[in-house]
Amino acid sequence: MLQDHITVQNRYKDFIKKISETETVYALKDDKGYATSYSNESEYEDGEPVQIICFWSDAARAKSCIENEWNRYEPSPIPLNEFVENWCLGMNSDGVLVGTDFDSNLFGYEAEPLELILDIIEEFKISGKSLNLRKFENMDDLEIQIREVLED
């Protein structure tokens, strides 16, 4: 089980690096919405598992999960700035987790949306790049606001 945990952690780190380089994430989408799953680790206060919306770092990984209940889905690219500002912030408000680079067994890293944004910001700082944001002055502004929310 420890090996699985290490594999998932490494896959999450690779997810952060790749989406920071390409500035794109992928979701699986059909005419009814986006691919979701349920947490293996977290549950709501009523004991129900927390909902997860799944995202991948490339279209090929996303395609590898098109089977069973997701057999009518197609990979859909999402610009990273939209993912950060709309998806992650919205998912945080809704109490939903981010599933990253799940495999065909729906096994992957389950991230808190605000923590994921902070990890993306950190990767951008390391690479010396900046993400163009529409709702925030810059990445520092976004980081400050997220840290304030997390401290409350």
Rank of each mutant, 00 (worst) to 15 (best):
H5F: 04
H5E: 09
I6Q: 13
Q9R: 14
N10S: 11
Y12S: 10
F15C: 04
F15K: 13
S20R: 00
S20N: 01
S20F: 00
E23V: 02
Y26C: 01
A27F: 08
L28P: 09
G33V: 06
G33M: 05
Y34I: 09
T36V: 15
S37Y: 15
S39C: 03
N40V: 06
E41I: 15
Y44G: 02
E45M: 02
E45F: 02
E45H: 05
E48G: 02
P49V: 06
P49N: 08
F55L: 03
F55K: 03
W56Q: 11
S64I: 04
W70M: 15
R72P: 02
Y73V: 12
E74N: 07
I78H: 12
P79A: 10
P79T: 09
P79S: 12
L80N: 12
N81L: 02
N86Y: 07
W87Y: 12
C88E: 11
L89C: 14
M91F: 15
N92C: 01
D94R: 08
L97Y: 15
G99E: 05
G99C: 06
F102T: 08
D103L: 03
D103T: 14
S104I: 07
F107N: 10
G108D: 08
G108F: 06
Y109R: 13
A111N: 09
P113V: 08
P113G: 05
E122A: 01
E123T: 05
E123W: 00
E123V: 00
F124G: 00
I126W: 00
S127K: 03
S127L: 00
K129G: 04
L131F: 04
L133F: 03
R134I: 12
R134L: 07
K135V: 05
F136I: 08
E137L: 08
E137T: 12
N138H: 06
M139W: 00
D141M: 03
I144N: 14
I144H: 14
I144V: 12
Q145A: 03
R147N: 06
E148M: 12
E148G: 02
V149G: 01
